[in-house]
Write a protein that binds this DNA or RNA. Structure first.
Lengths: 138, 138
DNA sequence: CTCTATGCAAATAATTTGCAAGCAC
DNA sequence: GTGCTTGCAAATTATTTGCATAGAG
């Protein structure tokens, strides 16, 4: 059985602050991974005053606890999405307009085993993103 | 048949300068993807004076021509590797020491087709990196 | 000789750090 | 009350841009 977000915070010795509730709310409202600036903008729009630095610190903390996922599209910045309650998945981004779409698939289970045997690493994660051109941009 | 690096530069209307030769030499000496700072350090060590800005500009240009590949490990900076003469492949990085290893495999050919059908994107690339702990760090 | 490429300075953008005050538990 | 959290200011790091000069073809 899976811990709730709040339980996971407690288990990590973290407090449930106004800032954290608000940041999680913004992330949960957005299905797709968003930038730190977009999280912050979402907080401002919700009339929640949270410093940008606090957003950075909490996203890093939530990532350590495994509650959010960092996604990099080679944009010069990271994007974040909530993990909780969602199936493992990947994304594709349009090189034209930057649009992102969820891909509810992952072909890497078997491969991970193989890599562990070949490299002697213990593999505990992977990043997989696709790039291309969306119907509007191509 | 594949164009040589020099021919690819010519085809792109680019000049073969001392800086470019030196940057490509540094990249070719390193089998694994290296950071911009590491490219620059390699130039300095080879007693080639090339400004860091020139390194940035040339890596961007070489990437546009498809001669180098940008790899992101969520480190806050990009890494680059030469494409020329190498088989398509991916990497794994140790979360402890940062060590990178080549993985000479790619399981994504069929999946790409499927994604194109499902999303109506035309897919022209992907990024796939693995993370874990190397034998020394785990 | 012409047009691209480079160096230098400076700007921008993303992210991190230090420290005193605030708030959750 | 105590210690984790936050805000604010400032530092750091990565990357980009403007412009005059240098160099490849």
């Amino acid at each position: 059985m899976e811990l709730s977000i709040i339980d996971s915070l407690k288990a990590g010795g973290k407090k449930l602050t106004k800032a954290r509730k608000a940041i999680l709310a913004v992330l949960e409202k957005n299905a797709l991974p968003i930038t730190v600036a977009e999280v912050h903008a979402g907080l401002v729009k919700a009339r929640t005053n949270v410093d940008l630095v606090t957003v950075y610190r909490n996203l890093a903390m939530l990532q350590e606890l495994g509650l959010v996922n960092a996604v990099g599209f080679h944009e010069g910045q990271m994007r974040y999405e909530v993990v909780h309650g969602r199936a493992h998945h990947h994304h594709i981004q349009c090189r034209g307009c930057g649009k992102i779409i969820d891909l509810m698939l992952c072909p890497l289970k078997k491969l991970t085993k193989l890599i562990e045997e070949q490299t002697r690493f213990s593999v505990d994660g992977h990043a997989l993103e696709f790039f291309g051109w969306c119907p509007q941009c191509r």
